[in-house]
């Protein structure tokens, strides 16, 4: 058993076309290009949860992407994969704002 510091990679997309169809299209693209890479131990994506609207909720986005990598090296490889670049090329025209939040975990047993 080894202790690894995982990378939790959260991306929040605000879209130019914020329609349900445009949101669903980006979710489908995330599912197509992003989960299937070495070192990905968790993947999820989806639309803003409309029911959660407390004052503390930042709701200025449309689609969230959540990946956990086993370590930073696998995250770095993922960023340069053709699939990731293809995902950006096909979808960036509808991105109004992209915010990325990366957490380096304190160490998990793997």
């Amino acid at each position: 058993m080894t202790s690894q510091r995982m990378i939790v990679h959260n991306v929040y997309f605000r879209l130019k076309d914020r329609s349900p169809a445009a949101r669903a299209a980006l979710v489908a693209a995330c599912r197509k290009y992003l989960p299937n890479h070495e070192g990905v131990v968790f993947f999820a994506c989806g639309e803003l949860c409309d029911e959660l609207a407390r004052e503390v909720n930042d709701r200025d986005w449309d689609v969230g992407l959540h990946l956990v990598f086993v370590n930073k090296a696998s995250h770095d490889v993922y960023q340069k994969t053709p699939a990731h670049e293809q995902f950006i090329a096909e979808n960036k025209q509808n991105w109004d704002r992209v915010r990325v939040f990366d957490t380096l975990t304190v160490g998990e047993e793997t």
């Binding site: 489908a28 599912r31 197509k32 290009y33 989960p35 299937n36 890479h37 994969t81 053709p82 699939a83 293809q86």
Partner: peptide, 11 residues
């Protein structure tokens, strides 16, 4: 995942 493109990673 369809539509398939060459070089796309397998699920």
């Amino acid at each position: 995942v369809e539509p398939y493109q060459v070089g796309q990673p397998a699920v």
